[in-house]
Design a protein around this nucleic acid. Structure first.
Lengths: 187, 187
DNA sequence: TCCCCTGCGTGACAAACATCACAATTTAAA
DNA sequence: TTTAAATTGTGATGTTTGTCACGCAGGGGA
């Protein structure tokens, strides 16, 4: 499990054993069962999470109780309600397990200590944040340029494994269409 | 003009005069006229830009020539085709002036030198990247949760000045609706 | 001055999509 | 095993939005 984290970081910045020991000391490990919540709307957000195995969804529930999936987080992804995390405010979104999931947890304080104590890690997180920003912008672009069917096909192409792992109704909620429409598209 | 850049950075990390001189030495200044391009689709992306004054739009043109606005960049914003910039590939988007605009330009090489030479600046860019990521995620959320009219009202509320500064057809293109639909909504 | 281009509004119609209702099937829990 | 809940497909219908067409007003350049 440690190894997973180390390999992930070392794709961007190589670490000595001592450095990794330092990094490692800032994280805690937790395991969650399917349907459990890592973050609940309205509560404070203690951690950012690195997914070792399993699958999470980041969900926003609007006033009328409709759920909108902002993101799926699979193996090797970082996830949190980052707005609430960084500003230390209450979560507006929830982070929930779609499968049994193992994560590394990083508190904001440890995140800051880690960045301050090891420039490599600040660099690592900068790269991750840039990638996250770019990824979100691509998703915006797909909303601007593509209709439901095209967005569905893009998702299918990019994350084929999702179609085995999550119900179609959740994919619809990620794509921004009703489950009925998605069902009719997938033909 | 220098002062603008310094104040912007110092909102996040305080700098000594020497440090700012070091920072400053990595940037060049350019001025563009309305309708000029800072980045053109298909060409390489030399710089990330910090907007001192004026207004830019980041645009994606699809195969059929329809234009989609990914982002407006006003005073104090950083903008580029960040995917092409960071990966040193050809631009898939264009960055164009909507008003006469003054910018600081930062090449990727200078960006890397700046981050490596002054941890404060790596920290600064990390904060900016996180903010950018969070901002994009909010925009995704507005696509998921809101119809055209609601997105229009959110934009109106958040960036009221845009309505004086850019034609409605471009706002439509940012919101992901046709200019006709926007025209009918705004009543 | 005249003219052309841009921006904006609006009517008519078509396409995309949401919603409601119901049924069939699969999955999970008791 | 039995029962309840979750998942999926599909028809009918209404709403939202896009597309095409047209007219009008204002501003800048020849």
């Amino acid at each position: 499990m440690q190894q997973k984290l180390r390999e992930h970081i070392e794709k961007i910045v190589p670490l000595t054993d001592d450095e990794f020991a330092f990094v490692r000391s800032h994280f805690t490990i937790k395991s969650y069962k399917k349907r459990e919540f890592l973050i609940q709307e309205g509560k404070s957000v203690k951690y950012a999470y690195f997914v070792v195995s399993g699958l999470l969804m980041l969900v926003y529930n609007n006033e009328s109780g409709k759920q909108h999936i902002v993101s799926f987080a699979m193996e090797d992804w970082w996830e949190s309600d980052f707005l609430a995390y960084h500003t230390q405010t209450k979560a507006t979104m929830s982070l929930q397990c779609l499968e049994d999931t193992d994560v590394f947890c990083l508190s904001l304080e440890d995140y800051q200590k880690l960045c301050a104590g090891l420039q490599k890690m600040e660099h690592f997180f900068l790269r991750k944040a840039n990638a996250g920003h770019i990824g979100s912008q691509q998703r915006i672009l797909s909303f601007l340029t593509s209709n439901a069917k095209e967005r569905y096909e893009q998702l299918l192409k990019r994350y084929p494994s999702l179609f085995q792992r999550v119900p179609k109704s959740l994919l619809a909620s990620y794509l921004g269409v009703s489950r009925e429409t998605l069902s009719r598209l997938a033909r």
